[in-house]
Nucleic acid binder design. Structure first.
Lengths: 247, 247
DNA sequence: CGTTCCATTGAGATGTGTCAATTCAAGTGG
DNA sequence: CCACTTGAATTGACACATCTCAATGGAACG
């Protein structure tokens, strides 16, 4: 890809670069630093650890691992999931760059879910102890972190509503719109993107079988709302898609 | 101590009493004060406001109300719900004594759901600003509050899993077990209780229709697992109920 | 003591799941 | 570089759990 080639030739803006700091990160406007003054960002930056990128399939953490940090995605995509008592998987979220995950581990000091990279991904590790200390000194950090957790709650509740009240078509349409707007937030195309997750993951997340997801995509394509070529999605008619999602 | 005893003999500890304090509240062991030292409990107690009990059907707050406080239930039961874009209701939670609600309002400074009393209920109002200030001084309060929010997240994710992976029978069984264990936590009978919510609310919460809920209750009764007399529930066989819930 | 809402039960409709077959994409080793 | 393997995605036919519609019974409350 031309985009990637350009990044590599300059060596500055590689999204997986783990030498980057919060201060010069493209994502700081939508990530944790959001509410902080320039000086305070450096305090936050100082406690953050950046390791080697995760390869596709690597785990960031696993269910029952000791909880020590929350994570901000810098590139790639992470899915979180839990295993039901009878051994099936339930996908609970997809996390894109700028989004923070791992907060479900706080209550029991143990992760309540597992997190796995859907493609090569870089994450910032934010040690929770030190974040807590810092938050007592920086009220705007405390309040922003509470907001993040609260947003996680409202998003989970939206998903509950989506799954329990909406048809297969509406669920898939809603997910496509969600991914589209999260792309827009990162200044990427809201109409053309590559899905990082499989149909299986999509179905699992939305409470549907793979077959149903596949059929819905076919139907939406026949309607001309979007074009699907394996994982490449092109949204042709946002408005109609919103109508179909009843959102 | 003697003074307290005297109080009890005269005005018997009414669960709706709004003169009660965190220090002498029966629920302090499972509620917000949980992690606090005796002295610190009084600080918390000082910022808490207790009003007149809510009557059945009264709203504690409504969707889009300005967010100013979270609430701890002291008696009765509160349901939270949101209205979907097409005007239908989605019940997102039932809150029993000792449980804290309203945290979904933090992210947007506006409540993301409505909260309504299912029966006469008393609540403690905890102004969020002052809780935040207090938390910066009492680390154990900060961490306990974060734990509360984190638990809300994991519970929502459990509900997502329940709705998207389990049959009607499993969902109803799981809810009965949840209510049973929450009763046990408050030293009430885990086998005999009165449901504060209607079948409609149960179905709505679990992503089922009223009719399906009703049929499931009938089936469970026919199996001898529990006895249902309108809202009175008696669990005869916890183990079998757990099996049916696959939990 | 009627009115109203809630709960139960039955019969039939339907959206999604299940099972199965085929095609397609990606990765691997000869 | 090609054959081979493996998993992902699509499509069809059929089954079934739950929904919808409808009727009745029961509880609660003024």
């Amino acid at each position: 890809m031309t985009h990637l080639a350009a990044e590599q030739s300059t060596t500055i803006q590689c999204p997986h670069d783990f030498q980057i700091s919060c201060g010069n990160c493209r994502l700081s406007k939508i990530c944790l630093p959001l509410a902080l003054e320039t000086q305070d960002v450096t305090y936050l930056n100082d406690i953050i650890q950046r390791g080697k990128p995760l390869q596709k399939g690597d785990h960031l953490y696993r269910d029952k691992d000791a909880f020590s940090a929350v994570y901000a995605v810098r590139s790639g995509c992470i899915k979180t999931y839990r295993i039901t008592d009878d051994g099936r998987e339930q996908v609970t979220g997809f996390y894109f760059p700028g989004e923070v995950l791992g907060m479900d581990g706080i209550s029991e000091n143990t992760h309540a879910s597992s997190a796995k990279a859907l493609e090569t991904s870089a994450v910032c590790e934010i040690p929770f102890e030190r974040l807590g200390e810092l938050a007592t000194r920086l009220p705007s950090l405390q309040s922003h972190f509470l907001q993040l957790m609260s947003r996680e709650i409202t998003e989970d509740q939206q998903l509950i509503t989506l799954i329990s009240k909406n048809s297969a078509e509406e669920r898939v349409a809603a997910l496509m719109l969600s991914i589209s707007s999260r792309n827009a937030r990162r200044k990427l195309s809201p109409s053309n993107f590559r899905l990082p997750m499989s149909r299986i993951d999509i179905g699992n997340y939305l409470g549907l079988t793979v077959e149903t997801v596949s059929r819905v995509f076919s139907r939406l394509q026949k309607l001309g709302v979007l074009e699907v070529a394996n994982k490449e999605i092109q949204i042709n008619d946002h408005e109609q898609l919103r109508d179909l999602a009843s959102i």
